[in-house]
Simulated assay, not measured.
Amino acid sequence: MVAKIGQVTFDCQDGYALSKFWEQVTGYTESPEYPNAPEDEENFIGPDGGHPGLLFINVPDGPKRVKNRLHFDLVPETTRDEEVERLLGLGATLHEDHRKEDGTGWVTMLDPEGNEFCVERSEAERGRH
């Protein structure tokens, strides 16, 4: 027997705003049956509004203070560098740049609440079409 992952949960200060950011990053959407709202304590997005998805729960803990123990490694449909620029435009910030002169490497970024995530090279950039 195994267990399936139903969702990944983010404890955050503004779950609605963070869900809107991650919607733009992933293309995930809210469930049409349970639309998200700014006043909701929980906001969910997923592929076609389904699971597995991302759940954002408002908590009173204040801002994030330490490094995440779990993070996403994103593989863009465009190039890594184009995706980094797109994400900066959405409100992400550059945290650490691990790109190398030979084109390998990744970029570590922060979402609007400071959660780390990485942007890797696309499948095409890796030679895997």
Rank of each mutant, 00 (worst) to 15 (best):
T9V: 14
S19Q: 03
F44D: 00
R99W: 02
G50K: 03
N36P: 11
T93A: 15
W106L: 13
L110K: 11
T78H: 11
P32S: 07
D14G: 12
N68V: 00
L90V: 03
F21K: 08
D102V: 02
E39M: 11
Y28E: 13
F72A: 13
P32Y: 06
G46H: 08
R99Q: 04
I45N: 02
H95D: 11
K20D: 15
P35T: 01
P47S: 00
L110D: 06
Y28S: 06
R65A: 14
E77C: 01
F21V: 08
L90T: 04
D61T: 13
E82G: 12
E33D: 15
E96K: 08
S31P: 02
L74N: 15
E83G: 15
A92D: 15
V59E: 03
V75G: 09
T9K: 10
R65I: 10
L88A: 12
R99K: 03
L18Y: 13
A17F: 03
V59F: 04
A92T: 14
F21W: 08
G50I: 03
F10K: 06
Q13E: 08
Y34S: 14
E85N: 14
M109C: 08
G105N: 07
V84Y: 07
C12K: 14
L94S: 00
G105E: 02
L18G: 08
D61S: 10
G105M: 09
D97P: 06
L54H: 09
S19C: 13
G46Y: 11
N36Y: 14
